[in-house]
Simulated scan of single mutants.
Amino acid sequence: MSGPLDGVRVVDLTTVVVGPIATRTLADQGAEVIKVEAPGGDILRYLAAGSRSPAMSGKFINFNRNKRSIGLDIKQPEGAAALRALLARADVFVTNVRPAGLERAGLDFATLSALNPRLIHCSIQAFGRGGPYFNRPAYDPVIQSLSGVAGAFERSTGEPRFVPMVMTDHIAGLIAAQCVGFALYRRERTGLGEAIEVPMFENMASFVASEHLGAATFEPPLGPAGDERLLSPYYRPLPTKDGFITAHPNDNRQAFAFFAAIGRPELREDPRFNTPKARSENAAAFFELRAEALREKTTAEWLDIFAAADVPAARYNRLEDLLEDPHLAEVGFWEQDDHPTEGRIRRARTPNRFSGGMREETIPAPRLGRDTADILRELGHDEESIATMMKTGAAFAEGA
């Protein structure tokens, strides 16, 4: 069996995280992804700590499985011609090069659709077209700062903070992969490709607004923006006698079971807590009483009590604890493989499953230009032509 995108060819001109997570998602579903790398390669090869050899950081390995790598200097005519030849045969082009750079290189949708009318052109941008920020550079912290993510931390903790993950890159990258799937479906009906623009800022502003617009949804506003439950300082893992736990009753059945579990069954009659609306309006008091109660027993004791009462609860995992989590172990979440150059590696498998089949073979993340010669042969280059391109630097492979 193969993945749902088997037979789809993707040309990937992306770097860092937002683009590679989009193309890895497509690759994990069976698409053939050809990663086009400029001299020096994707900066993520060097940016993250942890590597056994140069240009192969652990982070790069995680974001670039199931891809082939071709090294091209598209500033040279032969390199640019090879990229155009790839795009002429591709189904999808994904890039996070800024729009002005795409136009200068002749990689904008208008130019490429004339070359390949069936091409789906997906441009992941920091900011959308038409606004004053368009064409500015940005990375995840810039978008977290601008979109209200850091501001939500300030409301909650008293100081602006970033989520300690490149969250906006992940969200925008997954949205880009989703949009490509939508466009492929429409192409099945129309036969034509199309341009997709995925702006990181607007997508994250939408993400934050969906959670926190709240009373400001109405015009005029019925109150300030912000979901006070999520902005509570108690909205976090809470201390027990010997560690931390997260317990999160939500509907009435769960809330009343929680009250019974902590020895306060009378709270189900308290008008501050006897309905979801009341608990939301009195979130600070509700969260504070939860915090006080949880200090009275150990984490293991509470987990047993809440499991018996069917109250949503879980232990607190540190980053290292994920490697030993019993559920992840049981579902086969962690996989180990022998990378041809990097030795034994651990990776998280694709969590989602399709009954019609999944990609069976996992291709290890490539060394820079690993597949350059093979891909050029597929494009019709003979050995002399490949050797010439390698000599001039129009094409390259690590160590070649």
Rank of each mutant, 00 (worst) to 15 (best):
E202T: 08
A205I: 00
A205L: 09
S206C: 08
F207H: 03
A209M: 02
A209H: 00
S210I: 05
E211P: 01
L213T: 05
G214V: 05
G214D: 03
A216K: 08
T217Q: 09
T217G: 04
T217A: 14
F218A: 08
E219K: 08
P220Q: 09
P221G: 13
P221I: 09
L222Q: 12
P224W: 07
P224C: 02
P224H: 05
A225F: 04
G226F: 02
G226W: 03
E228G: 06
S232W: 07
S232K: 05
P233Q: 11
Y234E: 13
Y234G: 01
P237Y: 02
P239H: 09
K241C: 06
D242V: 11
D242G: 08
D242C: 10
I245G: 00
I245Q: 02
I245A: 03
H248P: 01
H248R: 11
P249N: 11
P249C: 07
N250V: 15
N250R: 12
N250S: 14
D251N: 15
N252R: 09
F256W: 10
F256L: 08
F258K: 00
F259K: 00
A260E: 15
A261C: 14
A261R: 03
A261Y: 01
A261T: 06
I262Y: 02
I262S: 03
G263Q: 12
R264T: 06
E266Y: 07
E269C: 10
E269L: 14
P271G: 12
P271R: 08
R272H: 13
F273E: 00
N274K: 14
T275C: 07
T275E: 04
T275W: 04
T275L: 08
T275K: 03
P276A: 13
P276N: 15
K277M: 14
A278C: 11
A278Q: 03
A278V: 03
R279I: 05
R279V: 02
R279H: 10
R279A: 04
S280M: 14
S280T: 14
S280D: 07
E281H: 09
N282T: 10
A285K: 06
F286M: 03
F286G: 00
F287M: 14
E288T: 05
L289C: 10
L289H: 03
R290D: 04
R290H: 15
A291C: 06
A293P: 05
L294Y: 04
R295N: 09
R295V: 13
E296F: 06
K297H: 15
T298I: 10
T298C: 06
T299M: 05
T299H: 02
E301G: 03
E301D: 15
E301P: 05
W302M: 04
W302A: 01
W302K: 02
I305K: 07
F306T: 00
A308I: 10
A314G: 15
R318L: 12
L319W: 10
L319Y: 13
E320Q: 14
E320D: 15
D321K: 10
L322T: 09
L323C: 07
L323P: 01
